[in-house]
């Protein structure tokens, strides 16, 4: 298939870089978490696309099927998604607490308040 056989990786890299850009260019903590989430989703897609086999079906035993997709990445990502939501919630809780303590969710203003103490 040549060089075009890698297109799944390129989609993943594009999404990953979008997330990365949001994380490093925005000072707003909520936006940073959104960026991290996009990054995370791109990793999920990377794993799942690795598990895909041409002509394979979902990994559930059925008669007359001999070729299945790789179940291992599915397992890893399945748990990772739920863990991801839980950790995102933890991050958002931190943001809420920071907002209460500092009155802002902008990184610059938090630094300014910290150094003025």
């Amino acid at each position: 298939m040549g060089i075009l056989g890698h297109y799944n990786y390129w989609i993943v890299i594009f999404l990953m870089m979008v997330g990365f850009y949001i994380v490093i260019s925005h000072g707003n903590l909520v936006k940073k978490i959104v960026g991290l989430n996009i990054f995370q989703a791109s990793v999920f897609i990377l794993y799942i696309s690795m598990g895909k086999i041409h002509g394979g079906t979902a990994p559930i035993v059925a008669e007359g099927v001999s070729r299945y997709s790789n179940p291992l990445p599915h397992v890893l990502i399945l748990t990772a998604i739920v863990v991801g939501v839980a950790t995102t919630a933890l991050g958002l809780a931190l943001v809420v607490r920071i907002n209460e303590a500092y009155g802002t969710v902008e990184e610059d203003e938090i630094h300014a308040k910290d150094s003025s103490l």
């Binding site: 298939m1 056989g5 990786y9 696309s49 598990g51 895909k52």
Partner: peptide, 27 residues
Amino acid sequence: VVLVTGAALVYGTLDMPDFGDPKAPVH
């Protein structure tokens, strides 16, 4: 920064197995 990182990652994929290839090391 993002463009440089992305380019490096794309360069890294050139050695990766094709999408949906049953002979990929993962399988």
